[in-house]
Amino acid sequence: MKQKWKIKETIKRENELVFQLQENAILESTKACGQILVDSDSLAFIYLLEKENEYVYLEIPEKVWKDCKEAVDSNDAFFVKDANGEILLESFKEEIEYLIENIRGNGNYGEDMEKAVSSIFLQ
């Protein structure tokens, strides 16, 4: 079974948006894969991380999308952080922009996902 890590909160820094992980997630030996998937059922984006030759899903829920949009619009860098350190989420901006454009008017992602993305990212 794949691990799924949840974001506890976002932290805004100058030219950066940081996703603070839940307490039981440990970034040690984790690498960013530079790819984002869509989880229409959970209304979330999933950034792929790799840890010990397995994928870890970083769930980016709708509750933090507004912060993501502001960071994308400002051309900020994206990071994920645990209690001991942080890693850069490579290609985050490019991937999220591609998916947002793909979801626009595309019923394949489900009506709820399309509405949620439109209401936040396409305003």
Rank of each mutant, 00 (worst) to 15 (best):
residue 32 A to S: 15
residue 88 L to N: 13
residue 35 Q to R: 14
residue 122 L to S: 04
residue 63 K to G: 05
residue 75 N to A: 10
residue 33 C to S: 11
residue 57 Y to S: 04
residue 12 K to R: 09
residue 20 Q to K: 15
residue 44 A to N: 03
residue 3 Q to N: 12
residue 4 K to V: 15
residue 52 E to Y: 09
residue 58 L to W: 10
residue 32 A to V: 07
residue 8 K to Y: 07
residue 19 F to W: 06
residue 109 Y to N: 03
residue 104 R to M: 02
residue 57 Y to P: 03
residue 79 F to S: 00
residue 88 L to F: 10
residue 72 V to F: 05
residue 34 G to W: 00
residue 117 V to C: 09
residue 84 N to I: 13
residue 46 I to Q: 04
residue 62 E to F: 12
residue 50 E to G: 11
residue 31 K to I: 15
residue 57 Y to D: 12
residue 42 S to C: 11
residue 114 E to Q: 08
residue 117 V to G: 04
residue 91 S to F: 14
residue 61 P to H: 10
residue 54 E to K: 00
residue 13 R to T: 09
residue 8 K to E: 01
residue 51 K to H: 15
residue 48 L to F: 09
residue 80 V to W: 13
residue 65 W to F: 06
residue 113 M to T: 04
residue 10 T to G: 04
residue 46 I to P: 02
residue 89 L to P: 00
residue 65 W to C: 08
residue 59 E to T: 00
residue 101 E to F: 10
residue 105 G to H: 07
residue 24 N to T: 14
residue 115 K to S: 06
residue 71 A to D: 00
residue 93 K to E: 04
residue 117 V to A: 00
residue 28 E to N: 14
residue 97 E to I: 14
residue 37 L to N: 12
residue 36 I to T: 03
residue 76 D to R: 12
residue 99 L to S: 06
residue 91 S to E: 15
residue 24 N to W: 13
residue 113 M to I: 06
residue 8 K to I: 07
residue 104 R to H: 05
residue 10 T to R: 09
residue 77 A to E: 15
residue 86 E to I: 03
residue 96 I to C: 08
residue 105 G to T: 12
residue 103 I to E: 01
residue 62 E to S: 03
residue 77 A to C: 05
residue 57 Y to W: 07
residue 80 V to D: 07
residue 41 D to S: 13
residue 89 L to F: 08
residue 96 I to D: 06
residue 28 E to K: 15
residue 84 N to G: 09
residue 10 T to S: 01
residue 102 N to Q: 11
residue 95 E to S: 08
residue 12 K to I: 14
residue 6 K to V: 13
residue 11 I to M: 10
residue 47 Y to T: 10
residue 61 P to D: 15
residue 42 S to G: 12
residue 79 F to P: 08
residue 17 L to I: 01
residue 51 K to A: 14
residue 47 Y to S: 04
residue 3 Q to G: 03
residue 22 Q to I: 13
residue 4 K to Q: 14
residue 100 I to A: 01
residue 49 L to N: 15
residue 113 M to L: 05
residue 28 E to Q: 14
residue 74 S to I: 05
residue 73 D to H: 11
residue 81 K to P: 02
residue 113 M to G: 01
residue 65 W to M: 05
residue 10 T to Q: 06
residue 103 I to T: 05
residue 43 L to H: 09
residue 85 G to V: 11
residue 57 Y to V: 00
residue 78 F to W: 08
residue 110 G to W: 04
residue 36 I to D: 11
residue 99 L to W: 00
residue 122 L to R: 03
residue 81 K to V: 10
residue 71 A to R: 06
residue 16 E to K: 13
residue 85 G to Y: 10
residue 106 N to R: 02
residue 70 E to D: 05
residue 63 K to P: 08
residue 78 F to P: 05
residue 103 I to N: 04
residue 76 D to H: 04
residue 100 I to Y: 05
residue 27 L to Q: 10
residue 52 E to K: 13
residue 13 R to I: 00
residue 64 V to K: 02
residue 117 V to P: 07
residue 36 I to Q: 08
residue 5 W to N: 12
residue 114 E to H: 03
residue 77 A to T: 13
residue 93 K to G: 03
residue 63 K to F: 06
residue 121 F to C: 01
residue 5 W to R: 12
residue 89 L to E: 08
residue 86 E to Y: 13
residue 22 Q to D: 15
residue 14 E to F: 13
residue 82 D to S: 10
residue 29 S to I: 13
residue 92 F to D: 01
residue 92 F to I: 08
residue 110 G to Y: 02
residue 23 E to W: 11
residue 62 E to W: 01
residue 21 L to C: 06
residue 53 N to Q: 07
residue 62 E to Y: 01
residue 82 D to W: 15
residue 96 I to E: 06
residue 17 L to S: 02
